[in-house]
């Protein structure tokens, strides 16, 4: 399989097939990252589009020695998501999480769909630093190294944020025991 780096090189040289292949290979991961970070499909679509357009213009800044191309894409997406979230009121996601946590009995009637939505809301209510680590490592299965490259922080920081983020999630979901979802 042609590597991402080769595809990027060819795409920057004007190879449309290479660019299309790279887009189709990686757009899902970028979209899901933006979706789990923002909770909004429209924002995720805009971010995905901007990430790849930015890659065309600024792909020359990609340095393979600092991480994979996917982590570079996550890094661009992260900046775009943060910019958009800064414009929103911070209580938006917290309010949704609190709303769910308010009714302690609701989980008895949760369907699988509702449980997943509850987890989604709990993730969205995490503070940004912990949310990033959880989304990248636990939802997108990024390696610690890739996550560190995307978040521009040491691997140890990713580990500690991930641990803390999971603990916070555990507290948020404690009142709502998650059904067996395996």
């Amino acid at each position: 399989m042609v590597t991402d780096e080769r595809l990027l090189e060819a795409a920057r040289g004007g190879d449309e097939a290479a660019f299309t292949a790279l887009f189709r290979r990686r757009q899902g991961a970028v979209y899901r990252f933006a979706l789990h970070m923002s909770g909004e499909a429209a924002v995720s679509e805009d971010v995905t589009q901007e990430v790849f357009l930015t890659l065309l213009e600024g792909g020359g800044r990609f340095d393979p020695s600092r991480g994979t191309l996917l982590s570079f894409l996550y890094g661009i997406a992260r900046n775009l998501v943060l910019r958009r979230l800064e414009k929103k009121r911070p209580e938006d996601t917290d309010a949704r999480a609190e709303e769910l946590a308010a009714d302690e009995d609701i989980l008895d009637d949760l369907t699988r769909r509702e449980t997943i939505d509850a987890v989604r809301c709990a993730v969205l209510s995490l503070p940004m630093a912990y949310r990033e680590a959880v989304v990248l490592c636990d939802l997108e299965n990024a390696s610690y190294e890739d996550a560190a490259a995307a978040l521009a922080c040491p691997v140890g920081t990713v580990r500690s944020r991930l641990s803390r983020g999971r603990a916070m999630l555990g507290q948020k979901l404690a009142a709502k025991p998650v059904r067996s979802l395996s």
Partner: peptide
């Protein structure tokens, strides 16, 4: 909720 259950919940969301 312990970490295993959290990871289980996250895996369900990821899937």
């Amino acid at each position: 909720m312990n970490e295993d259950r959290v990871l289980q919940a996250l895996k369900a969301l990821a899937d």
